[in-house]
Simulated scan of single mutants.
Amino acid sequence: MIDGIETPTWDASSLPADDNVNPYAFSIALAGEWFVSKGAMIAYYGNVEFAGVSQYASRASWVAARFSSPLYASEWVVAAGQGKVIVADRGYDVNSYDLDEGNLTIKQTNLLGFQTSLELKQSIVPGFVTLIGTGKFLASSNGPVIFVEPPFRADPDALLGWADCPSPSQHYDHHWMAQSFMAGIQGMFGRESGEERQYDFTGAGTVLMQSSEQLRVDGALMKLVESQTNLLDAQSAGALGHRLVQRSQQQ
């Protein structure tokens, strides 16, 4: 009991098996292998080994076949063994989802773990990855998840993912930007919000939204952007550097 509130005390046998411990933590009943995002594990019981995806692939070739995202390979580990692994993310809501021969694209920073029966691929949309197949995965959200059917336009910061529908196109509301002096200035310096830029979804499927626009920094995106700057000539690279300095000063 803490501050007069009775709280449960868990052990290896009483922890839930493949279920939530509370709204903010999930207990994986490990009997084999799971892919787990680095930093998501907060505790575990049993005989469990954690190894980086690249390290594990050197001794288990199936890992490379199931995890086809070189950009994010360093952000993931394989949890292998027998026991219970508890995962969480900054006090965010954590939910489990089941794919049945499905195709779901999700923001990489919100994906906490998935069964090895699923295959992960890098999405053509920066910052997102795609899960394909049948199995369970875990995702965090800043607030409850909202499920919406297309046609629909989403704020990029609040967008969590989409299932069984085409990748979105980007929509710019130039009328809104023209009517808002500050929005126009921010757009010049690369600062955007859902009011001027949205993801436009069409066709059948389901769009997943979180109830907030707060983001977690995706370090791998910096590597992607840096690799693309090699395509610029010296003049364009200088112009980009100047704009980035201006953006940094504005923020």
Rank of each mutant, 00 (worst) to 15 (best):
residue 68 S to I: 13
residue 69 S to M: 04
residue 143 G to L: 05
residue 17 A to K: 15
residue 49 E to A: 15
residue 16 P to A: 05
residue 187 G to F: 12
residue 192 E to A: 11
residue 56 Y to A: 10
residue 179 Q to Y: 07
residue 101 E to L: 09
residue 122 Q to F: 04
residue 228 Q to G: 05
residue 143 G to H: 04
residue 238 G to L: 11
residue 76 W to A: 10
residue 62 W to T: 07
residue 224 L to V: 12
residue 47 N to E: 14
residue 203 G to N: 06
residue 64 A to T: 11
residue 204 A to S: 12
residue 173 D to K: 00
residue 216 R to K: 06
residue 137 F to E: 05
residue 224 L to N: 12
residue 99 L to Q: 08
residue 71 L to S: 11
residue 73 A to W: 00
residue 200 D to C: 07
residue 182 M to K: 14
residue 77 V to E: 12
residue 19 D to F: 11
residue 232 L to G: 06
residue 171 H to Y: 15
residue 236 S to K: 15
residue 193 S to C: 10
residue 175 H to Y: 10
residue 194 G to P: 07
residue 188 M to Q: 13
residue 36 V to I: 15
residue 131 L to W: 02
residue 51 A to E: 11
residue 8 P to N: 10
residue 10 W to F: 09
residue 175 H to S: 11
residue 242 H to G: 02
residue 166 P to E: 04
residue 87 V to P: 01
residue 17 A to S: 14
residue 80 A to M: 08
residue 238 G to S: 10
residue 25 A to H: 06
residue 116 T to M: 04
residue 228 Q to P: 07
residue 229 T to G: 03
residue 25 A to L: 02
residue 51 A to M: 12
residue 187 G to C: 08
residue 188 M to K: 14
residue 133 G to T: 00
residue 121 K to T: 14
residue 184 G to A: 10
residue 166 P to Q: 05
residue 62 W to N: 07
residue 158 A to R: 03
residue 111 L to G: 01
residue 94 V to Q: 00
residue 151 P to Q: 03
residue 204 A to Y: 00
residue 129 V to C: 07
residue 8 P to R: 10
residue 221 L to W: 09
residue 103 N to P: 07
residue 126 P to E: 08
residue 28 I to F: 12
residue 176 W to Y: 15
residue 32 G to L: 08
residue 180 S to L: 06
residue 237 A to G: 06
residue 72 Y to S: 06
residue 25 A to V: 00
residue 233 D to R: 04
residue 123 S to W: 03
residue 153 R to L: 02
residue 31 A to C: 06
residue 126 P to Y: 03
residue 147 F to D: 07
residue 184 G to V: 05
residue 141 S to V: 04
residue 139 A to T: 06
residue 168 P to I: 06
residue 151 P to R: 03
residue 71 L to N: 05
residue 76 W to F: 07
residue 63 V to S: 10
residue 179 Q to H: 12
residue 235 Q to E: 15
residue 220 A to L: 01
residue 53 V to Q: 13
residue 168 P to F: 01
residue 32 G to I: 02
residue 109 T to C: 04
residue 241 G to Y: 00
residue 38 K to Q: 12
residue 102 G to K: 14
residue 33 E to P: 14
residue 77 V to L: 13
residue 111 L to T: 01
residue 86 I to G: 04
residue 175 H to L: 11
residue 110 N to Q: 14
residue 17 A to Y: 03
residue 235 Q to K: 13
residue 134 T to C: 13
residue 141 S to W: 01
residue 87 V to A: 03
residue 83 G to F: 04
residue 140 S to Q: 04
residue 180 S to E: 06
residue 161 G to E: 00
residue 156 P to I: 00
residue 43 A to D: 04
residue 58 S to D: 05
residue 49 E to Y: 01
residue 236 S to T: 11
residue 240 L to N: 06
residue 240 L to W: 00
residue 74 S to G: 03
residue 25 A to N: 02
residue 36 V to H: 01
residue 19 D to N: 15
residue 199 Y to M: 12
residue 205 G to S: 09
residue 98 D to T: 10
residue 219 G to L: 08
residue 158 A to F: 01
residue 133 G to W: 02
residue 96 S to K: 09
residue 104 L to C: 09
residue 9 T to Q: 12
